[in-house]
């Protein structure tokens, strides 16, 4: 059960944005800007960064929902998502994306763990300032979202089908505030 009285049977962050829509609308807006609006990184790549960081934070709800959204966006190549979550370095993604995920993984531990060598490597592989910026901010944002969702012990569905549906909605509708029924 959640630590505070949030709407029952509504999972994860949705229960929290319904509890306090004044803060919720800005949280959803941030997720939308970072994961859907203009960026040199594709939405699929950005959802992958979100899932990767949530996985490292052990946040089951965020990991499962963003992995589902990433699988949906990768379409025929959806296996990439599980390959990255299992062993990122051995997955089939580009060397540049691997280096960006290394940076995201460091940010997950602490901002201070990102080194000048990490930056040299990622730039050598062709990452632009804007790609680096967006990667760091997405990773930092998911360190917030994961703590918010788990810190208040929100409902975490265990049925993979529930996430499949969520992922589809996140791709089709983006990050829109839920209605009164949590949909």
């Amino acid at each position: 059960m959640a630590h505070i009285k949030v709407p029952e049977a509504v999972p994860g962050i949705r229960s929290l944005v319904m509890y306090r829509p004044e803060t919720g609308k800005h949280l959803y807006q941030l997720a939308h800007v970072l994961l859907r609006d203009d960026s040199p990184l594709s939405s699929a790549e950005r959802e992958l960064i979100a899932a990767y960081v949530s996985h490292r934070n052990n946040c089951m709800f965020c990991m499962s929902s963003h992995a589902a959204a990433a699988r949906c966006l990768y379409g025929d190549e959806s296996a990439i998502v599980d390959d990255v979550l299992t062993d990122m370095q051995r997955s089939g993604i580009s060397e540049k994306l691997k280096a960006l995920l290394v940076v995201a993984g460091k940010v997950q531990i602490s901002g201070k763990s990102v080194t000048a060598q990490d930056m040299e490597e990622v730039k050598r592989l062709g990452a632009t300032d804007r790609e680096i910026h967006d990667t760091v901010l997405i990773a930092a944002a998911f360190c917030m979202f994961n703590r918010y969702v788990d810190g208040l012990a929100t409902l975490t569905p265990t049925d993979p089908e529930a996430y499949k549906e969520m992922g589809k909605r996140m791709v089709e509708k983006g990050y829109a505030l839920p209605d009164a029924n949590g949909k």
Binding site: V107, S110, G111, V114, H133, V136, L137, A139, A140, C143
Partner: peptide, 11 residues
């Protein structure tokens, strides 16, 4: 936790 990582992660 977002701010601190944003600031230090980009040095």
């Amino acid at each position: 936790c977002l701010y601190n990582r944003y600031v230090d992660g980009l040095n």
